[in-house]
Design a protein around this nucleic acid. Sequence first.
DNA 1: GTATTTTGATCGATCGTTCGATAAATTTTA
DNA 2: TAAAATTTATCGAACGATCGATCAAAATAC
Lengths: 182, 182
Amino acid sequence: MNLIYQATIELLNESGLSEISISKIAKRANISSSIIYFYFESKEDMLIKLYFLLKDQMHQLMFHGVTESTPVKAGFENILRNYSNYILHHKDSFLLMEQFIGSPFIRKNCKDQNGGVFKPMYPLFERGIKEGLFKDLETNLLVTYSCMPFVEMGKEYLNGTYEFSSINIEKMIQMSWDAIKV
Amino acid sequence: MNLIYQATIELLNESGLSEISISKIAKRANISSSIIYFYFESKEDMLIKLYFLLKDQMHQLMFHGVTESTPVKAGFENILRNYSNYILHHKDSFLLMEQFIGSPFIRKNCKDQNGGVFKPMYPLFERGIKEGLFKDLETNLLVTYSCMPFVEMGKEYLNGTYEFSSINIEKMIQMSWDAIKV
DNA sequence: GTATTTTGATCGATCGTTCGATAAATTTTA
DNA sequence: TAAAATTTATCGAACGATCGATCAAAATAC
C-alpha cells in the first residue's frame, strides 16, 4: 500500500492531477493495476486517503513537543520551526499538499477540513489573544499572517529562489511574530 | 474563443484539472470539440494561453492607477486594494489562478513565470527599500509577507469563513505594512 | 466564389474498473 | 502435526467509455 502511495506522490509531483492514472501508478510501483482496487474503492478514494495521511503526518510533525501547557510564545516559535523542518525534509509531501489544497478535488470531497490545514493551530492563537500577546483579531487572520509566508517561501525554496537556512527561518519567525503581536 | 475560455474556467473550478476534457469543454460551450483545435494547437496550449490571459488581466487590475512615479506607500496601499477588488469581483479567475499555481502543469510549461504572479511588484518594493521605508531584506520575502495573506484570506472569503469588507481590507493593509516597515 | 469558420464522423490510445484464476498465508479440522 | 479449508493478496486479460486529435465536408462570411 505504501508502494501505491509512493508512486502516486511521485507522479503527482511530476505531472499533476491532470496526468495521473491507475495504470501509470501501477507501472511506476511495479504492480498490477487491479491490486489498487483491493485496497481502495476507487482512484478518488485512494487520493483522498493519501491526502488525509499526509495531512496527519504534517500535523504530527508540526506539533511535536508542543502541548496545551506550552507557553504561547514558545509554542508559536516551535511550530514554525517544526513546519520549516517539514518543508525542508518532506518536500514531496509539502508540494503535494499544496497541489491538493489548490484543487477543487479536495475542496469537494473533504468537507471536514474547513479552516484549512492550519486549523489545529487555532487554540494556541486563541490562548495568545486571551493572554494579551496577540492583536484581538479573527483567529484565522492571525494564523494566516503567521503561517502563509512560510508556505510561500517554502515554495520559493523548492524553486531555488530562497534559502531556507536557520538564520532566514529565525528571521521569518520574528517577522510573523511582529505582524500579529499587540 | 471566449466561449472556450469561459467553459474551461467553469469546469476547472467545478471539477479541477483531473476531470477536464476537450469534449466536456465543447459540450459546456455548446460548440463542436474540433473547433478548439482551430484556435489552439492542443489542450495544453489552450490551458497555458488561458493562464497567461488571466495572469495579464490580474496584473492590469492590480496596477491600475499605479506608475513608477507613484509614492511607495500610496502604491503599496493601492495595489493591495486593487488586488482585494480583484478577489471580490473576479472570483472564478482568482480561484483558477490558485489551482494553476499549485499544479505542476504550470510549473512545467511556463518557465517564464519565475518569481510567481507577484513579480511585477518587485520594483516598487525595491524602491521602498532604497527609500528606507521597508526592512532591508530579500524582495521576495517582503512581497510574500505583504501579499500572501490576501491570497489566503481571499480563499477564506470564498469559503465563507471571512468577510472581505472595506474595514477588514484596510485592517489587512495595515498589518502587511507593519510586517515589512522598518 | 474564394476564404474563413464550424461541424460530425472517426481514429487509435488510454481511461477506470471488473473479472476469474491463483499464489501465499492463515485457520480449522482430525 | 498433517491435511483440509478458508482467507488474503496478486496477477493478466478484458470491458465499454472516454480521451485527445484529425480530416473531409458543410456552413458562413466577405
